[in-house]
Design a protein around this nucleic acid. Sequence first.
RNA 1: GGCCCCUUCGUCUAGCGGUCUAGGACACCGCCCUUUCACGGCGGCGACACGGGUUCGAGUCCCGUAGGGGUCACCA
Length: 516
Amino acid sequence: MIRTRFAPSPTGYLHIGGVRTALFNWLLAKQSGGQFILRIDDTDAGRNVTEALQPILEGFKWLGIDWDEGPEIGGPSGPYYQSQRIELHKAAVAQLLASGHAYRDYALPEELAAEREAAEKRGERFFYDRRWMAADDAEAEAYEAEGRQATIRLKMPREGDCVIEDLVRGTVTVAWQTEQDHVIARTDGSPLYHLASVIDDHAFGITHVVRAEEHLPNTPRQIYILESLGYPRPQYAHLPYVAEPGGSAKLSKRKLNKYLKNKDFADLLEHGNRIAARCNVATSDDTFNPVIVDFYRDIGFSADALLNYLLLLGWSLDGERETFSVDEMIKLFSLQRVTKSPASFDPQKLMAFQADHFAALPAQVRLDAVAPFAIAAGLVESKDDPRLAAVVAAAGDRLKVAGDIIDFDYCFVDSIEYDPKAFKKRISKPADACDLLSGFRDVVLAADTFDAAAAESLLKGYCESAEIQIGQIIHAVRVAVTGTAVGFGMFDTLAILGKEKVAERIEKACKKAAEA
RNA sequence: GGCCCCUUCGUCUAGCGGUCUAGGACACCGCCCUUUCACGGCGGCGACACGGGUUCGAGUCCCGUAGGGGUCACCA
């Protein structure tokens, strides 16, 4: 039975790289009928845990990554907050101390810092020499009489190798002597991450530790802890990290300013900002950016598209197939096909996946996705407004994300803005534009029915009688009734607007042209 | 700097000694379709980091070099 876990710290946001790691864990568990566990690593956090956790939980819910055990639902191995498991961790520390795998260390932070500095000066790396180690109770008492307090350090082996069989990287060998005596408990007795993580993984029965490769250097000390405690080793799989757009360094939320220099990244954010501005989406720097999942949800991405893209960031089936439903991901994923090198985050490719996924959705689903944005932007009052369904259908794949509905605001609002360039080119400049437009307007007004087919025959008939090619008027019509030079089919547009609006806008455009 | 990891088109990747004049996707550039935009179709551009080996034969194995990256907390 495979049991995997993802262990976020309550930071207030869900990082895209973290989602990728969680996804792989989830997939691995799901495909074998195993369990995926969410554990909250809040040993350091303290305040506001619930608040800082909420966005993360909500992010997973939106993505459809559900957990079999963890916050909100509990489970047989609980509690799932590390801060609530502290007694267990302390007991393990005591056990390690008793068995001689760890020791009390009375070094003062200043003393350590001085040692570190001295080593650096000599051009050597700092290596703690156990100078303030208490070899027995008597020594400990003596140190404590001086007013010192002990941290607990691992008494790491100083010879031999630590051999890690990693499911992604193969055999990794590290000489024990390169490992420090890591601190596992602070002077106040509180246990540190590595200790807690190992204890909890064992307590939860985690069989596969699948995490980002930045944890690879931590693995020897964790192995030392678990083997000292007599625990079996889990299987390890260290995933390559997700790299920044156009670069090879790890994607980090802290370097937003740097990513903004990448055009694709900046364009994606700009796209989001455009939607957010119209749809009342909060755009705090902390969460509204393409490194954080909230961003995608808030501008109308499909969760499955994001998942599909992330799946391919470090994994491939055969190098050919790229589109996978969630069920297919679960069925086909394998750690064997995880790549070893970091994959850089490519906003354009992500958007391509999104566009494809969104275009393939059934009309009703697309409508449901778009409606909240249309309502928030004040384009319609309810999703039952027939114009909305008509626009979504007519727009087709021009809607890449649900929030793109704002690009077609001219189908809903009372008065439109004209793109100055388009207006000049199609209406002001051509001498006969307004005459032709006015002629067409009369035809429109006289029409009995005005659906797309009717609009088409009306315009074509008008061209015939005016003895012009359709190309000579259709662009002017588009600019006059939509304000822009681009959009979906003209006849659909006319039908959606209705004859009164079409006539009114043509008149207004001609008036504006005459004034200029 | 120590330790560890990584290295095929701009990007994501296929490739597990001969089928590689290196395949697919995104991006980019043409052309076609077309009332605009988008889609779609067709075509193009474009990579095995370098140097040694091993082998009849190396993108594929070995060793070096270079480059990139991760990590070195009483953070997680």
